[in-house]
Design a protein around this nucleic acid. Structure first.
Lengths: 226, 226
DNA sequence: TGCAGCCTCACATTATCATGTGGTCTGATT
DNA sequence: AATCAGACCACATGATAATGTGAGGCTGCA
């Protein structure tokens, strides 16, 4: 069990917190954490956010803890829908990895904070207080990512990184990966050795900062590298 | 409140800190604070940043504390010039007020953190460690401002129903594949066995009529199955 | 002329994926 | 009560991908 934390901001009324988390174990432990904390009131704990609008009206939370990966309706989508009807509700995103694209999406959708699932209970409760006080709790690494995203927002990123310095041959092979070709098929199709395909793909991975075919394909499609 | 403790005595070498602050009293007290702290080394304490480039070369700081209001050359301008020649140097901006437009300018110029001058000495030392560790120390209110600066994008595609009869779990796992997760990562993330991941993915392949991860990812992104 | 980037190929080892066969449990449907 | 689909797990085998090291020929550029 968690120790009873003490919070200095002494709310008049308890902060109503709604949890969206599809993992039953984590949902349970989060619920217990909140139920056992001074100044906190568990407004609800749900496994998906497909009924987000209705949930807001029914449960009237002050703060929502939103898992970013959920079946049916992703946390990002849920966030959008909550902010569309009740922007005053503070939404904290919970995720496993500090992944750049999602951070960007979440922030554009109006997230008020971004924490890792491994965040300690104490820090999580702190974060809820912080967001109520007008802050934006983030892990340091995510905060840095947010700052790094910035200079790229106004000037956009149209042509500058669009080809990520891939050579013509590399772009060509990346295109074939996107089409679902295996190394062997690429080698046959282009009439080169499979080892050559390997070395091209290795170079592509370096340039795109990825470590697998799926990541490369995903990045290629999302950033229009084909 | 702040979750990343900093233990200067664990550093290999001291962090060289350069101070730009035109107020002589504050400059002196900051200098004393840093000189008296384990793991910190005062690289210099200057009243203006008109010679920023030369200062960097001469003093070789790891971290710069930059007052945002200085005569001659503003902190923003100094920040720009530092980042132009040595982007690896971490620059923390110090300001009296949490003003929106300056926050924006500073962040666009590449600031690595943004603190108030009234920040406690302990927190300031923490922040220096945090920025060295890849974080971006900010006051909560500034963090919130930063998030608010991001463009608000309107809702996404409204109705999307070509889910190809994938079950909720299958869609979820397909989403993780698109994110570049391996079987092992998916199993760990969702708390299930890798063999279960296998069997889900096998079914996904059948339903999508594909035979590899890359094809599945490609189809998912192109047809909006996520 | 020398360096740098690109394209090509080879060999080796480990990790991960694809496929098949089988099974349990649960909840919804018939 | 029986059936069925979804989620779960296990074991096994061959195929494919990831990573490292090394190398030759080609081009453009300083």
């Amino acid at each position: 069990m968690y120790s009873i934390p003490y919070y200095p901001w002494q709310m008049e009324t308890a902060t109503r917190v709604l949890i969206y988390e599809d993992n039953i174990d984590l949902r349970t432990s989060l619920s217990q954490l909140l139920s056992g904390s001074m100044g906190m009131e568990l407004a609800g704990a749900l496994g998906n956010c497909t009924q987000a609008e209705a949930d807001m009206q029914r449960l009237r939370p002050d703060v929502v803890l939103m898992d970013i990966d959920m079946p049916g309706c992703t946390g990002i989508e849920g966030l959008r829908r909550i902010k569309a009807i009740a922007p005053e509700i503070n939404v904290l995103m919970l995720t496993v990895f500090e992944e750049n694209d999602r951070v960007f999406d979440a922030i554009c959708a109006g997230a008020d904070g971004y924490l890792l699932k491994k965040t300690s209970p104490v820090r999580l409760l702190d974060a809820i207080g912080e967001v109520r006080a007008g802050g934006a709790p983030m892990t340091p690494v995510i905060a840095r990512q947010v700052l790094r995203l910035f200079p790229k927002v106004p000037p956009r990123r149209p042509a500058e990184e669009s080809h990520a310095n891939l050579s013509a041959r590399e772009q060509e092979i990346l295109g074939l990966l996107v089409e679902g070709y295996s190394y062997k098929m690429i080698a046959a199709d282009r009439g080169i050795s499979i080892d050559t395909v390997r070395s091209h793909i290795k170079k592509i991975y370096e340039k795109l900062h990825v470590r697998s075919m799926t990541e490369a394909v995903s990045k290629a499609l999302r950033e229009g590298l084909t």
